[in-house]
């Protein structure tokens, strides 16, 4: 098991290294360098820069360095926690992201939990009551759940429940953390959680149904029945445990959707999460800020996959042995 974890951690570092390269390319991709943006800002404040000033700045920003030198400079700073400056806010990126990311992680975590708690029972019910009316209802809901864009669902729910979005009531927003603030959070959290997890819940329900139908055809389920076990025990103990296996693997597939959903939903729902800042940074080509977020989203994803792997090893003895 320890071996397994070490190997996975090693693979994770490699993945992150490649992600950092992709991220860096994305920073460099937009036309115009970071410096141009800076110069434009200075010019907007009044006054032109002369050539020597410009050259001094180019020197400082390393505009003419070869690309690998630029990457090295960026990544060595990033590892030390310096992700560059946000032009938009004119402050270090690190100061901007932590609080926002915290809420994003909380939202993604609650959404996964919600998706699981809803999709497993629904999927099991749907699979064991095939071709009944509730199964059809679940199936149709699940088609719609996958089809509805997060922002649309957010708008519809906000209109229906006369909500204004946000994670806190207005008077709680700036208040220090307290039990009352926590309760207030819970009162607001359900709506974003539903919005963010709707697609994934629908998807997982479908996966669960299909998996369980697969497992129910397995011989060992018949063996369990032949023992005289109650049908409920046959299903929940012998079948579901095996059907979870592919479901856990799909966490890897659902996480990107959850993070993406968070980004989109947070705009409509006015959430203090990473989403709105990220989108805004992209719109304004504030690339250091945007890409730092992207890196952290990826980090979340990689960690999520690691957790999924560990869960899988816990559920399935065959994987533990490897």
């Amino acid at each position: 098991m320890v071996n397994f974890i070490i190997r996975r951690l090693f693979a994770m570092v490699i993945t992150l290294f490649f992600i950092s390269i992709i991220s860096f390319i994305l920073i460099e991709l937009p036309p115009g360098s970071a410096l141009d943006a800076e110069i434009a800002r200075l010019q907007a404040l009044g006054g032109n820069l002369n050539l020597s000033q410009r050259e001094a700045l180019e020197e400082r920003y390393g505009v003419n360095d070869p690309i690998h030198a630029k990457y090295w400079k960026w990544i060595s700073n990033a590892v030390q926690g310096d992700f560059g400056n946000s032009f938009q806010y004119n402050m270090p990126v690190t100061q901007l992201i932590w609080g926002r990311l915290g809420f994003s992680i909380m939202l993604a975590g609650s959404s996964i939990l919600f998706a699981w708690l809803v999709s497993i029972p629904l999927g099991v019910y749907s699979a064991t009551h095939r071709y009944t009316i509730p199964d059809y209802v679940i199936t149709v809901l699940q088609f719609i759940g996958v089809a509805i864009p997060e922002f649309l669902l957010a708008l519809v729910l906000m209109v229906t429940f006369e909500s204004v979005g946000g994670l806190f009531s207005r008077d709680m927003e700036t208040a220090p953390w307290s039990f009352a603030k926590f309760v207030d959070l819970l009162e607001h959290l359900w709506l974003p959680v539903i919005v963010v997890s709707a697609g994934s819940t629908a998807w997982l329900t479908r996966v669960m149904r299909a998996n369980l139908l697969d497992v129910l055809n397995q011989q060992y389920v018949q063996t369990a029945r032949a023992k005289g076990l109650k049908e409920s025990k046959v299903i929940w103990k012998h079948a579901v445990r095996n059907a979870l296996h592919p479901l856990i693997m799909t966490i890897g597939g659902v996480l990107p959707a959850l993070i993406g959903g968070d980004v989109v939903a947070s705009i409509v729902l006015n959430l203090p999460t990473a989403g709105p800042v990220f989108i805004n940074a992209l719109r304004n080509q504030d690339m250091y800020l945007a890409i730092t977020f992207l890196m952290f989203f990826s980090l979340l994803l990689v960690i999520g996959n690691l957790i999924a792997d560990l869960l899988l090893a816990w559920v399935d003895p065959r994987i533990r042995l490897e």
Binding site: Q219, Y220, R241, N242
Partner: peptide, 12 residues
């Protein structure tokens, strides 16, 4: 059953 490979539940 016929298939000893699949007639026991792999997770117990």
């Amino acid at each position: 059953f016929q298939e000893p490979m699949t007639s026991l539940n792999p997770v117990f």
